[in-house]
């Protein structure tokens, strides 16, 4: 795909907006449709588009596999860590009421953090899977 000028220019224009949209979906998921799962997939699709148009080598420079694979685990740890934070504050596992000053504030904070964890894992997992399939020799 290296010689398709239209694809290169259009994807360069689109990728920032795809990422911005992913962040919007991630943090606006409390109020409208969206959340960590969708945002993760959209964020991953930005990297996958970059990899398809500009080649796997360049995509690996933008998102180094060593970092991405660690992010897969980091998301799960963020999620479970939020659960343990509630445990340490004297409530049940994954009970967010105690995380903030008021129960509803705590719920907001807890949901924001775990949705971020979900988004991280999903995005990193999808990018990792794409790198592995695309990097396989014929």
């Amino acid at each position: 795909m290296r010689h398709h000028r239209v694809l290169r220019v259009v994807s360069k224009l689109l990728i920032p907006f795809i990422m911005l949209f992913a962040l919007y979906v991630q943090f606006h998921g409390d109020f409208g449709p969206g959340g960590g799962f969708q945002a993760g997939v959209i964020m991953a699709s930005a990297f996958i588009l970059y990899g398809l148009i500009f080649g796997l080598e360049n995509a690996r420079k933008v998102a180094p596999p060593s970092v991405v694979t660690k992010l897969v685990a980091a998301g799960v740890l963020i999620y479970a860590g939020t659960g343990y934070a509630g445990l340490l504050k004297g409530a049940n596992f994954l009970d967010y009421n105690v995380l903030g000053a008021t129960p509803v504030g705590g719920q907001h904070l807890g949901i924001l953090i775990i949705e971020f964890g979900v988004g991280t894992t999903v995005a990193a997992a999808m990018v990792t899977i794409f790198f592995l399939f695309a990097g396989r020799e014929r």
Partner: peptide
């Protein structure tokens, strides 16, 4: 179903 879809693509992979 929302979670099942994303898990579905992971298992498809």
């Amino acid at each position: 179903i929302l979670t099942a879809i994303v898990v579905g693509v992971a298992t498809t992979a």
